[in-house]
């Protein structure tokens, strides 16, 4: 086999590997799911964050898990947002501090 033929075959293999998704670094469902909280909490570096996002974007099985966690967090935030401090608390705190200065 000539060198040129060998080179052609090698290039063909590289092309097929690329077409099969090699090198695109798609992570597994397991990897994506195990990182779901770190992803939502903004704790991932740019690289891993993109990989996790890419997985959830295309994986029909994992996507609902992400949505479930988001719905959960929305509920927690919404419920806590309904809490308001009693009227006059700020004034009472200021007053307490002022009195502690006098004493």
């Amino acid at each position: 086999m000539s060198l040129l033929e060998r080179l052609k075959r090698l290039l063909g293999r590289v092309r097929r590997w690329k077409e099969a998704g090699g090198g695109s670094e798609m992570i597994s469902c397991e990897q994506a799911l195990s990182a779901v909280y770190e992803y939502l909490d903004g704790e991932l570096e740019a690289g891993p964050r993109e990989q996790v996002k890419a997985h959830f974007d295309v994986c029909a099985r994992c996507y609902p898990h992400l949505r479930l966690e988001e719905s959960f967090r929305t509920a927690l935030r919404g419920a806590s947002g309904s809490v308001q401090s009693p009227p006059g608390l700020r004034e009472r705190v200021m007053d307490l501090i002022a009195r502690s200065e006098d004493g």
Partner: peptide, 24 residues
């Protein structure tokens, strides 16, 4: 890894919309 809740919700409410229906 798979949220155990999801097994109960699969086919019913897979995205957990019910969370938002619960009173604050």
């Amino acid at each position: 890894l798979v949220n155990p809740l999801w097994r109960s919700l699969d086919g019913v409410d897979p995205e957990g919309a019910f969370f938002r229906s619960i009173l604050d």
